[in-house]
Amino acid sequence: MSNSAPVKISASDVKVFYGDNQALHGISMDVYQHEVISFIGPSGCGKSTFLRCMNRMNDTIDQCRVTGSILLDGRDIHEPALDVVQLRAQVGMVFQKPNPFPKSIYENIAYGPKLHGLAERKADLDDIVESSLRRAGLWNEVKDRLDQPGTGLSGGQQQRLCIARSIAVSPEVILMDEPCSALDPIATSIIEELIDELKQNFTIVIVTHNMQQAARVSDRTAFFHLGNLIEIGNTNDVFTNPQQKRTEDYITGRYG
């Protein structure tokens, strides 16, 4: 992907503190429209924390403080006029562990559109549910049991349900926090294919501890270590020709 695409998210000097602990030490980077960018690094390096800054999910944690600026389409997401509800409708999120609500499959997908008033009629809602499930590649597997609980699906299906759930509110960016870490290899490869398709319409930021996955799905890769952004570049370059010694050590398995 060329760097000519417009900048979707622009972060500069983002610092995060948990109480007295500083988790991020001034991260600056740009995310381009309709690209897949992956964050890699050893556990505890701050990659998930940074991801959660992008839709202000860190607000839900007591004692967590964020400084610096993050611009979404050139607009600061911390500015008071921007409602966090609106931000999160724009920047969706898929979590590490599949977390379908204890509701039916249909209700899981319809949850967001109902909240935001995206459908006036039942037929519209049905359309949104169907198209979201189709785009998440789950439609054929669940179309006959939409009224059954989402928690009854297999792990991989649950995660695709969660992806469908976030697609249903038509976000512009989807943040994925290690979406495959709880899944088996087959379910993982299905999700990876899905990500590949989704990037036609969405900007995708994915956190992964699996370097092969980052290499397979992402256009660009950012390497985090101890709360610092060490290196960011085209995925091929980062993996074959890392500029930093620490990146090279991590990729070659010296630590991790």
Partner: peptide, 19 residues
């Protein structure tokens, strides 16, 4: 994670609690 899932979709706190 249940609350996060709902908040991440843009639900308000009361919507998350009630629904």
């Amino acid at each position: 994670s249940m609350r996060d899932g709902s908040l991440g979709l843009g639900a308000t706190k009361s919507e998350t609690i009630l629904k």
